[in-house]
Design a protein around this nucleic acid. Sequence first.
DNA 1: TTGTAACGGTCTAATATGTAACTATCAAGG
DNA 2: CCTTGATAGTTACATATTAGACCGTTACAA
Lengths: 154, 154
Amino acid sequence: MTLVLEEFLPYRFNRLAEALSRNASIAYKTEYGLTRPEWRAFALLGQKGTMTATEISYFSTMHKTKVSRAIFALEQKRWLVREVDENDRRLERISLTEQGKRAYESLVPKMQRVESELISSLGKENSEALFKGLTALEELYLDEKTASRSRKAD
Amino acid sequence: MTLVLEEFLPYRFNRLAEALSRNASIAYKTEYGLTRPEWRAFALLGQKGTMTATEISYFSTMHKTKVSRAIFALEQKRWLVREVDENDRRLERISLTEQGKRAYESLVPKMQRVESELISSLGKENSEALFKGLTALEELYLDEKTASRSRKAD
DNA sequence: TTGTAACGGTCTAATATGTAACTATCAAGG
DNA sequence: CCTTGATAGTTACATATTAGACCGTTACAA
């Protein structure tokens, strides 16, 4: 009995995830000096506006210490600010500065270009199949219930 | 202009890769005490027979130091042995011991069961779409040329 | 031969990540 | 009020991972 690693789903996903991330990271890493966790937190703040660190952790599925450090780095760059919530002083409301928003507006189109180039190279039929398969898998594995339990991954 | 992280391919792949790996790892981690790099090296050796460390690194797309440590751990378990190649004494020919082969024969069916349960939960249509999409992506990103250049990932 | 470049593999030092402890705050009950 | 237990976030320590130096080979051209 033999298992062919190249056909094994966890292996295929890991390899592709790594390749896609590396490919996408070129833009935010070389031009903006962001790490992957920083990019994720940044993208979420640009997408959703003001958030708490816990929310960022939830939506990015990153460990809270990773988020904490990513936020610190973005704060150093003056791309975000925090304000303590007056109603609950444990919370910090985090939002992009004007400078951060400008960076977002200039970075996001580049990221989207990478993605759309990828999709057009795949072709309509393949990319539709891919989306269908991914969505089905996500429904199976990453339901709210599951997602809220396992938030430590990168 | 907004980028929706939940729809961004690198993010989706990373999350799914993590979820699939975690799910698959239960079998080899709890019952056999293997780490992920160890499992990968082990699976390759079971699949392909005798290999060198560099070959394992190539096919597993793992960094060579990771492979080195994985091999060391499997050697400690007495699941593999190395012999220096007489023709080229830089090389070590690594292969599973009888004990290693027995472990392989008992572990692999469990891993395959996990995988086939996943696929049957997805249903025929979705899993076919998934495979089609994954294969297309792999051809685009992980061709020999590409794969041989970027071998550091996990 | 010998010098030089390349290779297989390991070891070391720097980075990145996760675990668990800690601070500060809040909420609810006595 | 005061205690107990939970939550938000940071920090310190332990672990895991990577980059790069390193050693012993080998290949091959001069």
